[in-house]
Design a protein around this nucleic acid. Structure first.
Lengths: 342, 342
DNA sequence: CTGAAAGCGCTTACAG
DNA sequence: CTGAAAGCGCTTACAG
């Protein structure tokens, strides 16, 4: 079936071949390649032709050696791989970042470094110049990797608010206000005994969403007893267990604010198992507006995180840093999405 | 909190600095770096010291420019991202390959190219030398990307048997024999009306596992009517729908061989919804022995794919190709794992 | 075992 | 606008 011998790469054409073919100098070819400034229309056309005829592709190693740039960026996850696979938000974020960078012709490498050993390798890899910058995603912050990268002079943009000291470039949704919107909605529904399943206390989402919940209850003059609060781990199972504990302690609950859609699905299972109807007996609000929200039965009322804009802003901040400027932070608004569960 | 000004990268130390510091030539330093052959113990020690003192790290762009090697490999997925996230097998495979390559100090880049546009970019990226070889995963074969990479002279190893013509290096589990083992098991359980949910007909698993099923039924003298066969798409939902159709058509089914664990979980849901008990009324066998198998209720009897060995072999074949040798294929045995569902 | 030298393919001031 | 030239940091025969 194979018609021709596969074209084993012989000597690949270089800029020199193109120059000879086009009848110009290598300098001119290079200038054409790098934006075409100071190249006459005639030369440009000749070079263009020559590139096509020779099948020339730039040797990125040679280019990188001079420019000190690799021309690519990393999407780094400093969590165990499972996390990544389970959470639908990562999916959306990764796709968004890939597309935003593609518009600048910068490929995005996905790197996962959950273990210490992987993180050591990663650091070596990045600092040895394979990548110009890093988009870092990890829910648990105070992440040592972030610090180490920044210390090594690598441009880094975080997804989510950093919890440690020091200012790091980051993009995040307004967690606290999102929580406020949701709990306010539950209150307006007439609910009075509103529990919450939070994220881990060492994550910004865990802290901020709980704070927003408390603010609204206080403002509404509703009880915010500690036994209305349970901690989850952003996993579906964790949400189910947390909701079950809550329900055992407070069978009189009439609403539940769950700090992620995935956990909310778990909570739904716990409620169903306990014979509660949603939303009639217990109204349930999630957070994220991820794929999990619409896959759920009933569909989840939730808080939309603007993932598209988050990824766009992350890329923008990274590019800014690459061009040598200092960057700061961007906080994006969240929005209540009403569906069936509350 | 920050004690010192972050060490902004000034001029990084080069091999030249190390040579001067160690009192040897750059050639000697380079030889030390590349295996230490033809370097006296004394020189070696001096270089070692100098490297530590200067904090030297090799500039990989310069090295790559000469060797023509990037020193890294890609784990490429030519499917929509969702696929990747849903299927627990990918997770295991990715981790296995990463570790096997790490032992050779080769970082693995995860690249996802589901759309045509992404595949174009990818091809440019890989052929421009960013990566020395590709581990390619895609269930639907006859994948044009694989052919294109091979044509461009890029070392490629496939996971799974290629369906197209031409010989491509690949590693796969023995799908057909796995199916035989499972169906034989169902027959030995005394089941006589055994249905199957297959994978897509354009995937090797879809074809081979169905073939194994048919072989055993024929050998056992059992009916293998077409109405006992439904096609799934390897997703949980697909499995659920397929099983429901099967059940509607053949309410007398007493066993079901489902070509993936994920689909088997869907099938379980369909059976439960139809009021069937598993395994009493209908015995269910899966395929993969993925995380889904033990997460399921009841736990799935299934066919174990040796993912660890598969990833090890994929890496071995890739390294072989990188060293210039031709490679062929490796087929690994599968194994029946008995749990509760059959 | 080791140094001097050539060269990998490209970019970028520097003169014109 | 354009060419000649220097140089990025490394590896690798080639002589010794």
């Amino acid at each position: 079936m194979t018609m021709s011998v596969p074209a084993r790469r012989r000597r690949a054409p270089t800029i020199h071949d193109v120059a000879r073919e086009a009848g110009v100098s290598r300098g001119t070819v290079s200038r054409f390649l790098n934006g075409g400034h100071h190249v006459s229309a005639v030369s440009a056309r000749a070079v263009e032709e020559a590139i096509r005829r020779t099948g020339y592709v730039v040797n990125r190693h040679a280019r990188s050696l001079i420019t000190g740039r690799s021309g690519s960026a990393a999407f780094l996850l400093t969590e165990p791989q499972e996390k990544f696979f389970e959470d639908p938000n990562f999916n959306v974020l990764l796709r968004g970042c890939t597309q935003a960078l593609a518009a600048h012709d910068i490929p995005l490498l996905l790197m996962i470094a959950g273990t210490r050993e992987e993180q050591r390798r990663l650091l070596r890899y990045v600092t040895s110049g394979h990548v110009d910058g890093v988009l870092l995603v990890s829910s648990h912050t105070g992440d040592p990797v972030a610090e180490q990268l920044v210390d090594a002079g690598v441009p880094v943009v975080l997804c989510g608010k950093p919890m440690g000291p020091g200012r790091m470039a980051h993009v995040a949704a307004d967690d606290r206000d999102g929580a406020r919107q949701m709990v306010r909605h539950l209150v307006e529904l007439g609910r009075r005994r509103i529990g919450t399943v939070t994220g881990p206390p060492d994550t910004p989402g865990g802290v901020e969403r709980l704070a927003g919940y408390r603010e609204v209850l206080a403002a509404a003059g509703l009880p915010a007893d500690d036994d209305l609060v349970e901690t989850g781990d952003y996993s579906r199972e964790g949400g189910e267990r947390a909701a079950a504990r809550l329900l055992a302690r407070r069978p009189d609950l009439d609403a539940l604010f769950v700090a992620s859609d995935l956990m909310a699905r778990g909570a739904l299972a716990a409620l169903t198992a306990a014979g509660r109807r949603v939303p009639q007996d217990v109204a349930v609000g999630g957070f994220d507006d991820s794929a999990a929200a619409v896959a759920s039965r009933p569909e989840l009322t939730t808080i939309r995180q603007p993932w598209d804009r988050i990824s766009q802003e992350m890329v923008r901040l990274l590019l800014t840093q690459l061009s040598g400027e200092d960057t700061s932070a961007v906080i994006l608004p969240t929005e209540l999405v009403r569906r069936a569960s509350a």
